[in-house]
């Protein structure tokens, strides 16, 4: 018949060439072992440099029990006195910070997308700002703004905003880069101006990602703004730090409980909105 399509078992045994196949070459295998060795030795040396003091270490469970007994019972009466206002303040800081970040991140995201701007120097400028925003922790941003604007909500809002610019800008820029260029080309072919193309070809495609990113960042910001008060940037962190300094452990526990509740509620809200969006 000419061509065999089906190979019988006999065909296999008659074929006595051994084909050579290996997942990794010798060099790759050695390199992989070297990486393992590095990991293990790094772990070993880091344990040695941490200098765990055994007395404190063995004492830890006892100390923890002691702390918990001081925190119990939770002082619920303290909630309306100070915690409520502070937790609302925290939510305000997170929300306002996210909105300010959005306004500042939008132009940077557009600048960093290679499907929109073709000049690479523009990409580098945008990337510079996005990276510098992300490399500084929001607590450090807060320290800076407290030094400039003094303690209070404004420092908190700006700290949250400046940390979020990098996050929102980078992810939004990536979403813009993954847009299907076919629709963009089609709109260019109709003679539509650039702004219209942004509105009608880019926006419908990045909209789900856009809301997803904003909600995700807001969720993170609720948690981060709870800590900002430790450096005086407003919110529930101020209560937490004051109560700790005054050894009011039962007030600390209500503050922690409030943070926990807010984070859980934020999570539920975000999950539900996102489900509706996609």
């Amino acid at each position: 018949m000419g061509i065999y399509i089906y190979f019988s078992e006999k065909d296999f045994y008659m074929n006595n060439i051994d084909y050579y196949w290996e997942r990794f070459t010798l060099k790759q295998r050695l390199l992989r072992y070297l990486v393992y060795v590095c990991f293990v030795s790094a772990l070993f040396f880091s344990i040695r440099t941490v200098e765990v003091i055994p007395e404190f270490f063995y004492d830890a469970p006892e100390q923890m029990m002691d702390l918990f007994s001081r925190m119990w019972p939770i002082e619920f009466e303290y909630y309306p006195i100070a915690v409520h206002t502070a937790i609302i303040e925290t939510l305000n800081i997170a929300t306002l910070g996210t909105l300010v970040a959005l306004v500042l991140a939008l132009p940077l995201a557009l600048m960093s997308a290679s499907t929109i701007v073709s000049y690479s120097w523009v990409h580098w400028v945008a990337r510079f700002f996005l990276v510098s925003s992300r490399t500084v922790n929001s607590l450090v941003w807060a320290l800076l703004f407290v030094a400039v604007f003094g303690p209070g909500i404004i420092s908190g809002v700006l700290a949250i905003a400046f940390r979020s610019i990098g996050f929102i800008g980078k992810l939004l820029g990536e979403a813009l880069d993954e847009v299907n260029m076919g629709s963009v080309e089609a709109l260019r072919a109709t003679g539509a101006p650039m702004i219209t193309i942004l509105l009608k070809a880019y926006w419908p495609q990045v909209m789900p990602a856009f809301f997803s990113i904003i909600l995700f960042r807001w969720d993170i910001n609720v948690r981060e703004s709870a800590v900002l008060g430790l450096v005086g940037a407003g919110g529930i962190g101020v209560i937490l730090s004051d109560s700790m300094n005054l050894f009011q452990w039962r007030q600390v526990s209500i503050a922690l409980l409030a943070i926990f509740a807010v984070v859980i509620i934020a999570e539920i809200i975000v999950v539900n909105i996102r489900k509706k969006l996609i």
Binding site: G182, S183, A186, L187, T190, T196, L199, K200, P204, M207
Partner: peptide
């Protein structure tokens, strides 16, 4: 085809008029 996938069919057809409109109208 290069349609805008997430828009409705009628909106995609109307897209053909975007060259005649300002961005604000769009």
């Amino acid at each position: 085809y290069n349609l805008v996938e997430r828009l409705s069919v009628i909106e995609n057809v109307l897209t053909g008029r975007l060259g005649y409109m300002t961005s604000w109208q769009a």
